[in-house]
C-alpha cells in the first residue's frame, strides 16, 4: 500500500519560470490493485509517477510505502527501494542499444550481486513468459515495437518488484497489442502486484481489470472513482 500525503512538486522554485507540476496531491494506492492516472498532456502524470517511484523527491509532502516514510531517506536507500520495490516501464522503453535482449532484461538485477546462473534463469523464465526466448541473444534494435515493449516489461519484472509503474505503455502500440498488454497486466494483478499506469488511452482506463482511475488536471487531483 502506498500513501501520498500533500505532495507538491515545484520546478524552478523561486525563479520566473517557476512551475507547479503537482499540487497538493493526497492519494492512497491499494496493494494488488490496478490504478490508472488519467489527464491531459502536461497535467503532471509523469511527474507524479517519478515522485512516487522514488526517482525524484517531492518539493514537499510525504510518501509512505507500507507505512514507511521514504521521501526523506538518503538517496542510497531510495535507489535500493527503487530497484527492489518498483519496476518501471517507460514510454520510450529505454532499452540499451547494441546489447542483447537477455542482458537488457538482466541489467536492473546486476547491482544486487546475486549468482549469475540464478539471475540468468530468472531472466530467461520471464522472456519465455513473453515468448521472447528465441530472441534472447538478439540485439534490441532488431526487435519489433511489440517485442521491444515486452522486453521492457520483462526488464521491469526481473527484480520481482511489488509495484509496477508504467508511463503511457500503449502510446506506441496498436489496438491488438494494447489489449494484449492489458491481459498481461491483469495477470500481474492476479499474482498480487500493485500496478500504476499513467495513460489517456481509453483501452487502458476502460479496461474491466482496472480498479481505480484517478483524474488529474493542472497538477491537481479531480474526484477519483472506481472504473
Amino acid at each position: 500500500m502506498i500513501e501520498l500525503q500533500h505532495i507538491f512538486k515545484i520546478f524552478n522554485a523561486g525563479k520566473p519560470n517557476e512551475h507547479v507540476a503537482v499540487e497538493d496531491v493526497s492519494l492512497t494506492i491499494e496493494a494488488a490493485k490496478i490504478t490508472v492516472l488519467r489527464g491531459p498532456s502536461g497535467s503532471g502524470k509523469t511527474t507524479l509517477l517519478s515522485v512516487l517511484g522514488c526517482m525524484a523527491r517531492p518539493t514537499s509532502g510525504r510518501i509512505l510505502l507500507q507505512n514507511r516514510e521514504v521521501t526523506s531517506l538518503p538517496s542510497r536507500f531510495r535507489t535500493e527501494i527503487r530497484r527492489k520495490t518498483f519496476g518501471f516501464i517507460f514510454q520510450q522503453y529505454h532499452l540499451l542499444q547494441g546489447i542483447s535482449v537477455l542482458e537488457n532484461v538482466m541489467l536492473p538485477a546486476y547491482p544486487n550481486g546475486d549468482s549469475f546462473a540464478q539471475l540468468k534463469q530468472q531472466a530467461e523464465k520471464l522472456l519465455d513468459l513473453f515468448g521472447l526466448l528465441p530472441k534472447a541473444a538478439s540485439k534490441v534494435e532488431w526487435l519489433s515495437g511489440g517485442e521491444a515493449q515486452r522486453t521492457a516489461i520483462a526488464r521491469a519484472l526481473v527484480n520481482n518488484p511489488a509495484v509496477i509503474i508504467a508511463d503511457e505503455p500503449t502510446a506506441h502500440l496498436d489496438t491488438k497489442l494494447s489489449r494484449e498488454l492489458m491481459e498481461i497486466v491483469a495477470k500481474f494483478k492476479a499474482e498480487g502486484k500493485t500496478i500504476l499506469i499513467a495513460s489517456h488511452d481509453p483501452i487502458v482506463h476502460e479496461s474491466p481489470v482496472v480498479d481505480q482511475v484517478v483524474d488529474m488536471r493542472d497538477g491537481k487531483l479531480m474526484d477519483s472513482g472506481a472504473a
Binding site: 542499444q97 547494441g98 546489447i99 542483447s100 542482458e103 538482466m106 541489467l107 538485477a109 546486476y110 547491482p111 544486487n112 550481486g113 546475486d114 549468482s115 549469475f116 539471475l119
Partner: peptide, 22 residues
C-alpha cells in the same frame, strides 16, 4: 563476500558488452 564478487563480475560483464558495441 560472494555478493561483492558477483556484483563486480556482473558489472564487468556489462562493461565488456558495452565496449564490444563499438
Amino acid at each position: 563476500m560472494s555478493y561483492l564478487v558477483n556484483k563486480q563480475r556482473n558489472i564487468l560483464d556489462f562493461a565488456l558488452s558495452s565496449l564490444l558495441r563499438r
